[in-house]
């Protein structure tokens, strides 16, 4: 890949392999993501999109190869440093991963509490992102009382609330209708404008029209093509 912008790489993957037992999930993946890129990772179900994202925030470790995030070598990072790596990333999990015993608001505010933000700021910011995904009137609901789409939007709000350097979103619109999907992408675009590097894993090619970005196609764990649209 030829870089013309001179922007620094935020994520670099070198010959990354990931196996689950004998199952090969990723095979020899090489990828560079620059600061403030907007990247779609696409491919059929089972292609390895989720696996690729999970390697980036150390929910899983590579079987072979190397990954650098913000210049940090993920294979050598000390356990105590992992939380600080994760604070630079907002993650929308494919299965949402909301805390069931916390309200919508508490789920989102938690991220800012872990970093010890001012209480007043937390309240303002958490409400703000929840408003942006259309959940301002569900603040005190518990996740299990919400529809799948609403839960997904809570997950998006939680990922965005900390103004992360990198946003990793795994099928973030999988459960959403067009209006809700537009809201989510408005939020992503806003973060992107402010400098966040966004990586969206999706099998839905209609999303590519929403943002100008790069597209990385995975096929059975291998990078098939990299395009810019």
């Amino acid at each position: 890949m030829i870089m013309t912008t001179g922007a620094e790489p935020v994520i670099r993957m070198f010959h990354v392999h990931k196996r689950y037992g004998s199952q090969m999930a990723l095979h020899d993946v090489n990828l560079t993501v620059l600061k403030n890129d907007f990247v779609f990772i696409t491919g059929q179900s089972g292609a390895g999109k989720t696996t690729l994202l999970r390697l980036l925030f150390l929910d899983e470790v590579v079987s072979q190869g190397q990954i650098l995030v913000n210049g940090i070598h993920l294979q050598r990072i000390r356990r105590a440093k992992i939380p600080f790596l994760r604070r630079n990333m907002g993650v929308v999990f494919q299965d949402f991963r909301l805390i069931h015993s916390y309200t919508v608001y508490e789920n989102v505010a938690l991220v800012l509490e872990t970093t010890g933000q001012q209480k007043r700021y937390i309240q303002k910011r958490a409400r703000q992102v929840l408003r942006m995904v259309g959940l301002e009137d569900r603040l005190h609901a518990y996740p299990q009382r919400l529809s799948g789409g609403e839960q997904q939007r809570v997950a998006v709000a939680r990922a965005a609330v900390g103004n992360p350097l990198i946003l990793l979103a795994d099928e973030p619109t999988g459960n959403l209708d067009t209006t809700a999907a537009d809201m989510v992408f408005d939020l992503f675009r806003q973060l992107h404008t402010r400098g966040t590097t966004v990586i969206v894993a999706t099998h839905d090619s209609r999303l590519f029209e929403k943002v100008q970005g790069r597209i990385v196609v995975l096929n059975q764990g291998c990078v098939e093509s990299k395009l810019t649209v």
Binding site: D59, P83, T114
Partner: peptide, 16 residues
Amino acid sequence: RQELEIMSLVGATDAF
């Protein structure tokens, strides 16, 4: 366990 795992994933330190 679910709550604790999620906390760790969103960047909470062990101490927290």
